[in-house]
Design a protein around this nucleic acid. Structure first.
Lengths: 232, 232
DNA sequence: GCAGCTTTGTGAAATCGTGCACGAGCGGCG
DNA sequence: CGCCGCTCGTGCACGATTTCACAAAGCTGC
């Protein structure tokens, strides 16, 4: 295998699609598909075939002209590039409704992100089990992060506590944060934050609904597919 | 007030940011702030001031030069444009871990998206209460949607059931879907789908972590802020 | 009423992302 | 061994988005 100095930077838009391709490829692999064309993958991912080829080309030239891509090999390369060749344990801050659901959602561990810890500020929750993990005091956060060298933290607190949670995560050494609180976090440069705001998603849908309602009827002029979603 | 024929189409990128501005404006309003400049709003939203002005300009010319924007009026206009001048009740398909958390998450109702119904395929769950709503059989979905003229459906099923859920929602008349299942949905044109895949979000973070790890150390060359997130 | 200061609204330039079109490379077949 | 058909990799044009830069416009104070 080549020296794998990190190759050229992959555009964000592509990075956001790679996991989707990966998911599909793994699934196809399990169904016994050994090879797939950009056309085929594009169909399954709900995107354009040229886009698939361009996206995959950032990983390197792993396709075979006239044939397509070998599913297993592509999965391997994609995992490597995404840093999924090992697990990334995460710590969840906030054991409320959402925090519990996240901890209990098996999908995390299965996809390489086991829940290494859950902390909350509410004493009543200490030592209760959520998703098989014991809830610990917020003040233990730093120790948990350091002890397990965690890089990724998930914020599932109420909005008012989110910035504090972020500050604590960052000072404990976390460099990537997935934020579910409807709050714009301020973090130092070098820390990556992704925000998932359920209400925002619904409001975007609302905009499109509102638009449909107030418009004549030219349905065809409305993009069938918006944002990270997909449709046909 | 003007006849408000839907004005020019608002770019998707802008539509995705408006709810964030809205959230901030409402908050500022509650804090007694009556007026805000593009600069101030930009700071709070973690974006560029010029971008704020351009985004707001799609709503109309609601600012006052030399002064800024009147918070309340801007909130009003933004709500109107986003279709948030009335509630959009939603139905949740799937009363598992995530479905329950979503139904129980007060944030939905508060922000204009009350949970009008929850359905599941598991008999054991029928008639249990989640978030104050009684779980009903999947087969009642169509009736629920029609009875309440719902436009928005939320899919919180396991991946294997997601496409079926989508089909049922669409045939019942839903035209917007928020999909939490890690599956690419196929829907007819005219239906808007937004996908939220928690594992994908984590994988994107993983990519950046991996990149940091494999790179020399030029931290400053890494964008501090990625995707929909924010940082400083 | 006018000068000066501030902040908006918006053309124009720069950047980023997408999709097309096509040359290049590979496997299969005669 | 050479030809054919298929599919990748990518240059290029186009469209969308971001950013810059500045004229226009409102407010304040004299």
């Amino acid at each position: 295998m080549a020296p794998h100095r990190t190759r050229r930077r992959i555009p964000e838009a592509t990075v956001a699609r790679l996991p989707v391709y990966l998911q599909i490829l793994v699934e196809q692999g399990e169904h016994g598909v050994g090879n797939i064309s950009s056309e085929g993958l594009a169909e399954l991912a709900g995107v354009n075939a040229a886009k698939v080829r361009k996206d995959l080309s950032y990983l390197g030239s792993y396709g075979t002209r006239g044939v397509g891509y070998e599913v297993d090999y592509l999965v391997y390369q994609m995992r490597r590039e995404l840093g999924l060749d090992h697990d990334w344990p995460v710590v969840i801050v906030g054991a409320g409704n959402l925090g519990q659901a996240l901890a209990g959602y098996g999908g995390f561990g299965e996809r390489g992100f086991p829940v290494a810890g859950v902390v909350d500020i509410d004493e009543a929750k200490f030592d209760t089990l959520v998703g098989g993990v014991r809830v610990r005091p917020l003040d233990d956060l730093s120790q948990i992060v350091r002890a397990k060298s965690l890089s990724i933290g998930v914020i599932a607190t109420p909005p008012s506590a989110a910035q504090d949670a972020a500050d604590r995560l960052v000072s404990a050494g976390v460099t990537s944060i997935l934020n579910f609180a409807p709050v714009v976090l301020v973090v130092p440069a070098g820390v990556t934050v992704r925000k998932v705001d359920l209400a925002v998603e619904l409001q975007i849908l609302s905009y499109h609904e509102q638009r449909r309602a107030s418009q004549a009827v030219p349905l065809h002029s409305i993009p069938a597919n918006v944002g990270r979603g997909a449709s046909a």
